[in-house]
Structures are given as C-alpha cells and as structure tokens.
Design a protein around this nucleic acid. Structure first.
Lengths: 130, 130
DNA sequence: TATAGTGCACTAGTGTTATAGTTCACAGGT
DNA sequence: ACCTGTGAACTATAACACTAGTGCACTATA
C-alpha cells in the first residue's frame, strides 16, 4: 500500500479508501482483525492519529467495530457494505467524468472511446504489477 | 451555471473547470471576452476574489490573457488547449474509477456495465435539461 | 474631467489537515 | 501481579487552503 503525501486527497481518506477496498476485495473477512493503529502507522510512516481518523470513518460506515484492547474487526455485513459503497464510488466517478465530457461538448463516441482506452491502459498497469 | 458550496471541490476550481469547458465547447471563442470578475461573482453569488482565483488558473494554463481595465480574453490557441485538457481530465477520471473498481475486486464486466449505466443515466439527465 | 467598469494586490478570518505528545481503560499472555 | 499491545480521548501546534473584504491602478467613454 502506498500513500501519496502530495496528493490533494487527505492521507486519512486515502487510508480509509484503501482499507475499504481491501475489505470489499476479501483481503480482510468478517470477524477478522484489520491491522492495528500503530502497526499501520508504522508501515505507512504516518502518525497513529491519522490512521485512527481513517478508522473512525470506517466505523461510522459500519464496516468495522472496535474491541478495546484487542483491535478493529470487520462486521458481518462489512464485506457487502464495502462492496456496495465501493461500487457506488466507481459509478459516481464515471458519472462525473461523463458529465465533464458532455459539458465540454465531447461527442458521445469520443467519451466511450476514452473509457475504452483508459480501461486498456489500467489493465496493462495491473498486468505489470502481478 | 450552478455552484455547489457544499462540494469538497473548491468553488474557484468549479468555476475554472466550468469556464474551461465552456471555452472547449466554443461558448467563448478566441479573441472574445469572457464574463468579468464582478459580473460572474454577482451571478454566482460569490466573492470577486474567488472568481479571480479561477481566472488565474486559466491564465496560467494559457487559455486566457488579461488586459488591464478591459477584461479577460480567450487566446488564439485557447480553444484547442481547453479541449485537450478537458479530454485529459475525463481520461484521468475514468482511469481513477477503473483502478478503484479493480482494487475492490470488481470483475471487468461489472466495471464496464457500471460505466454503461452511468452513461445512460447522465444522458437522461441531459435530455431533461434541454 | 468625471464616471463606470475592468483586473490586481493586500489583509484578515475561518476551517481543514497532519503531526506530536500525553494519558487512560481494556484484554491477553507470562 | 506484571507487562505488553490494543483503541480512545484530549491538548497543542504548525501549515495550508479557502473565502471574504477593501482599496488601488488601469481603460474606455460620456
């Protein structure tokens, strides 16, 4: 997991997004513990308070719950919830891009073609990683 | 033009994006003047400084230039530049959404289907407006 | 010359973000 | 009993982003 300190999106939100997707992807399953505040803070080289802020967001969403002295655990419906919110986020991102393209007077075909090109590129990236 | 004060994206950036797309769409053509600071500020009910900040961004991009005491004018290559950056922005937005979906373990088909659904929805919105 | 409209510069207040430090209560293992 | 590791809470600070308010210099026109 990589954190971009120069990004405009806050660090705590990057962490929350990443953990949420990991839960959606099944990396952490219901009942399982996610990495501790201090462990994750050490790994990402950020302040524990920043990680805690990300956990607060996930707890508010009902994806995880805290057991004092033990750690944070994925709720029973956490996996499905994470999948749902992740999918909604993807949908909203696409919709924003489409609106921007239409407002700039891009023809429909060009918008679709731009998506196909982006898909191929991202897929190529993914291939390299694995 | 509508400004969302509750959005996480800054007002000045919303304005810059909107004007950039308007230039790309040919609403304002090279050599023509774009709405003045105060006129736009009045219309959007924001502070003139906020509009100016948006104009600064557009000027840095080389889309417009200022003539003191007169106004901001679209440069000769402003239209093409605006089209180019707008298209790049759309591409980047799509790529971000695709990466998020893949990280969340969404199957390729589902990502593509989500895009199609978003496209239909946005197209329906546009139909209602016109 | 006077007036109105233009962009520009400076200051100030507010909120957000991230870090740092400290303390506390709880659970588990030795 | 003790120690370690866990989340939670609080304060303080520094830096930055954002918006608003105000005044100034410039241009064109009546």
């Amino acid at each position: 997991m990589a954190i971009d300190l120069n990004s405009s999106v806050p660090v705590y939100q990057q962490i929350a997004d990443h953990v949420r997707r990991a839960i959606a992807a099944g990396v952490y399953r219901p009942g399982e513990m996610i990495p501790s505040l201090r462990a994750l803070a050490l790994e990402l080289k950020v302040n524990p308070n920043t990680v805690q802020r990300a956990f607060e967001a996930l707890e508010r969403e009902g994806l995880v719950y805290a057991r004092k002295g033990l750690g944070m655990f994925v709720t029973t419906h956490g996996s499905k919830s994470a999948q749902s919110t992740s999918q909604t986020a993807v949908y909203e991102t696409f919709a924003r891009g489409i609106r921007a393209g239409m407002e700039a007077n891009m023809p429909d075909r060009q918008i679709r073609q731009t998506f196909r090109r982006a898909f191929e590129d991202v897929e190529a990236e993914a291939r390299v990683k694995s």
